[in-house]
Design a protein around this nucleic acid. Structure first.
Length: 329
DNA sequence: CGTGTCACG
DNA sequence: ACGTACGTGACACGT
């Protein structure tokens, strides 16, 4: 795909490019545990350490991703490994810069599902978040019609997969593949989901209808995604557009929210603190924090991120600190 | 230069 | 009957 530009952004984000001041990196050298595949990181990253700063600097594109997210390249610092045990060694190599500093990571908890609760106004989902419930557990209890203490880990896991699927615009076939169950079972699961969260079903139907009537869907701050394929005679092409209509307002509103929080946070920090933002990874902010400022910065970051917008459900941020990026997470 | 496979949210 | 979850970037490999 050719690189294109999407210029309908409405976020006052001109300040963002100056926020990224780069990571310091501890060179891994010939650490033997890396698999050949992780060449992308082990071989490539040390070569990209800037001679002057001693840091790795990425480029963030604000006008590329169709939903309004940022994208990161040369190198991509938004896909540094974390799940694989060996991959974690790579994440450990990202360390704070300057003496007396520490990395702080602050990430939004379940922001896209919270936005589904907000945008759909589904009472049951709003209620779950209002009570700070374990959302996958409470989803499982509802769709399997059991009290929470009778939900098995397998049921919770299915509900978790269903929750992800809902955000992406689920199909019974897709869900059955991921859960390794029959299509009939998957369809029953989805039906259980919709009867538990009727507002979510309405949200999905409305999103598709709006795309058909107006030609676009929009985020909480008004960024539009145009979906001409919604009228395609080809059912496959049309299906993609329909799922885009469902997903884009969720993913895009999350992007709006964190970008606005970044701008507000930067205004609070600049000229007042030694700590500063170094990266954003979609629902997470990473800061290089002066140790003397840790408690202040924690409070400011949490406050700016959680109170950036008032939604029908609370926004919750998890914060960690550490001597490397893995430890901070 | 396209395809497949990996990494992340 | 169709094919099947959203958004990205980097690398290896075949053409």
């Amino acid at each position: 795909m050719k690189r294109r530009q999407f210029l309908q952004n409405t976020i006052p984000a001109a300040i963002l490019p100056s926020l990224v001041d780069g990571f310091s990196v501890k060179v891994l050298g010939d650490n033997p545990i890396m698999a050949a595949l992780l060449n992308t990181y082990v071989d490539a990253l040390p070569k990209l350490i800037d001679k002057k700063s001693g840091k790795i600097h990425t480029s963030l594109d604000q006008a590329w991703v169709s939903t309004g997210r940022l994208s990161s390249r040369n190198p991509n610092l938004q896909n540094i490994p974390i799940r694989d045990e060996r991959g974690k060694e790579i994440r450990k190599a990202f360390i704070p810069s300057g003496g007396n500093h520490i990395l702080l990571s602050a990430d939004y908890s379940q922001i896209e599902l919270r936005l589904m609760a907000h945008l759909s106004e589904d009472e049951n989902m709003i209620d779950a978040f209002a009570h700070n419930a374990d959302i996958h557990l409470s989803t499982a209890a509802k769709i399997f019609k059991l009290p929470e203490n009778e939900v098995t880990p397998a049921m919770r896991s299915k509900a978790k997969t269903a929750n992800f699927g809902i955000i992406y615009g689920i199909s019974s076939f897709g869900l059955s593949q991921r859960l390794n169950i029959s299509r009939t079972e998957a369809a029953a699961l989805i039906q259980g989901y919709f009867s538990s969260f009727p507002g979510v079903k309405l949200y999905m139907e409305n999103a598709v209808r709006k795309a058909k009537e107006k030609g676009f869907v929009e985020t909480i701050m008004g960024r539009r995604r145009f979906l001409p394929d919604i009228h395609s005679a080809n059912a496959i092409v049309r299906g993609v557009a329909e799922r885009n209509a469902i997903n884009a307002p969720l993913q895009g509103s999350a992007a709006d929210i964190i970008k606005l929080a970044m701008v507000n946070l930067q205004k609070k920090l600049q000229d007042n603190y030694k700590s500063y933002l170094i990266l954003q990874v979609h629902d997470e902010l990473i800061l290089n924090v002066d140790k003397d400022e840790i408690e202040n910065i924690r409070n400011i970051v949490r406050s700016e991120m959680e109170h950036v917008m008032k939604l029908r459900v609370p926004l919750v941020v998890d914060i960690g600190v550490g001597n490397n990026w893995l430890e901070a997470h």
